[in-house]
Nucleic acid binder design. Structure first.
Lengths: 346, 346
DNA sequence: TTGTACGCGTTATCAG
DNA sequence: CTGATAACGCGTACAA
């Protein structure tokens, strides 16, 4: 056998090894992989055989350095330990995979500063594009992204007034229509349990939706009792108990998400309250938990998986075409279950 | 100002730009970043100032190519859309971040072939190490990893007989001790609802645990009725209904995970059965769902977050020391709640 | 259609 | 302690 056909052992084969074995140049091997229709079929076969026999696979770092593209998309989410993100991100990842992209994830723990740091990290790591949750962040972050020419897409929120590429739903409008339902049932003392709204526009918009519902019904939006607490069943329960110690107990408690709502529900049951007769409770997101709760939860359904898919498609399209893809507003709908009494007879 | 201090605009600053602005060589800049105590403090200051003023951050692809290390760890999980993985992976990612590592994720959709493909993809992308779920995979996959010298850690399972680095729990033993509890309560007709066991050793070990419990109690393990179905509440419900149409109805249904168990519970309630009086039901994992189910679920608690943390630590240690870290068996414990009747009086 | 040769941004070796 | 400079593995003009 020809001396030149030998290949180092105990080492990862590289492009040059494939070229040597196939008896072609490295450029040709590269073309076989990236521009398949620019090579003759016979050459292609030789190269592919060499690739198989060596078990070659390209070094992505080198490829990224040379081509200035990583085929990697970054996502920064508050936490994966939350069904609403987990499901959407799973769909996002599946969709990316169809296009040969890999997902790089980081989490911000709902902290604005940490999110900014993660954005810089993923950028340095060469993410071709970024998925971000919600709109709220410092202007300098958007400027940084623009300067770096890194397409960023906002998900889990859609606001027609914002210029940013987005795939999501209108938190404000969805919550407002749920509030309208609650008000139609005669509730006048309403309270909200919400995640901290400081750097969370989704949570903020939902509360604003309730307030606007109140205003439309001729009520004072400032009279709305609001408790902010972190995302957990326990916290939801505790907040509910606090509400029940108030002088004027609310007759309906609208929660910013299903987890808080289930916590409220749990506390209510433990206090011996009948749901929805004594108090009505509503959620948001429609995660699995909602339908199996002791009293099935009335909540706002959000198409998480479709959102993840659309987000991936919009980003891939942007990368392929070089032009910012289209924003996409997804519909939400109210799931009436057991925690909100039926409307009064007409 | 000196001509040489100028730096291109509208472009991402690189190491050479920092060097020029700081008036040192690129080697020195690199050292400031990687071997800080090999440079004089004064030099360090100049360089850091230049870095700040330029907003420089290193190009990880180039770094990876030159240093042959990506500071990236890959994880291949069946799906993130499952609380048991989502929680553990979140902790895993947080822990990696403490060590400056970023997480690359891929999902296998519970498919063996897809998992193998993903393993090859992530290694090609330069993952320094890999997190895998469970032991079951083709020997050639382990050989590939060994040849490539890529540390791989198995999580969500721990089997003292396997040589592979692992951080997890003993599925077999945990389920066996739960089975013992069920048997002690006088149940003799037991059925299992489990995820498909074909390429899922965790599911398989859990079923085997039940069988061994049966054997120890002097019962025939082959008499165990088993239904395999995919992970979802709906499927759990349907499987339960099937079980109830059997000639000899089981008095206890042991489910391979909480989601299937909650489905069973739901079906039972809809059929008008009293839990645990008419039928006992058990789960596995202790996800949030378990404690808020209509009847709180008796299940096996697994420390998902700690598992994720330990897994990250073991991998980082392996990477840093160059020697395979230590496997770690985590304890599980049974959470007695409402779906298994208390033991008979003694 | 194929080959040559250079550049991508860092790290690391070896002098100084 | 610092500076040249050669890798690292691949993509891609440009030439043939």
């Amino acid at each position: 056998m020809d001396e030149t056909n030998k290949v180092p052992v105990g080492t990862v084969p590289k492009l040059a090894d494939v070229a040597r074995v196939a008896g072609v140049s490295t450029a040709t091997v590269s073309r076989c992989l990236n521009l398949p229709d620019q090579v003759k079929e016979k050459t292609m076969r030789k190269v592919m055989d060499a690739i198989d026999s060596l078990g070659y696979s390209p070094n992505y770092s080198a490829r990224a350095l040379a081509a200035n593209r990583t085929n990697t998309v970054g996502a920064i989410i508050p936490t994966m330990d939350n069904a609403i993100f987990a499901r959407g991100i799973q769909a996002f990842q599946e969709e990316l995979h169809k296009s040969g992209c890999t997902l790089l994830v980081a989490s911000s723990s709902y902290e604005e500063d940490l999110e900014e740091e993660q954005i810089r990290t993923l950028t340095a790591r060469g993410a071709d594009a970024l998925l971000l949750i919600g709109y709220h962040r410092q202007p300098r972050v958007y400027e940084f992204l623009k300067k770096r020419r890194i397409p960023a897409l906002v998900a889990w929120a859609y606001n027609p007034d914002q210029p940013q590429l987005a795939v999501g739903f209108n938190n404000h409008a969805a919550m407002k229509s749920l509030a309208r339902e609650v008000l139609e049932r005669g509730h006048r003392k309403i309270a909200c349990i919400t995640a901290p709204t400081g750097s969370n526009d989704r949570a903020r918009d939902r509360v604003l939706g309730v307030k606007e519902g109140l205003r439309d019904a001729g009520l004072d939006p400032d009279g709305l009792t609001i408790i902010e607490t972190n995302y957990s069943i326990e916290n939801g329960a505790q907040a509910f108990q606090e509400l029940m110690t108030l002088d004027e107990r609310p007759t309906a408690v609208m929660c910013g998400n299903d987890v808080l709502a289930v916590g409220a529900l749990k506390a209510a049951t433990e206090m011996g309250l009948k749901i929805p007769d004594d108090v009505s409770i509503t959620g948001f997101d429609d995660i699995e938990l909602a339908s199996v709760a002791p009293v099935p939860l009335t909540t706002v359904h959000v198409p998480h998986r479709r959102m993840g898919q659309f987000a991936a498609q919009a980003l891939i399209e942007t990368l392929d075409s070089g032009q910012t893809g289209e924003s996409h507003e997804l519909p939400t709908n109210i799931c009436f279950r057991g925690t909100l009494a039926p409307p009064p007879e007409k």
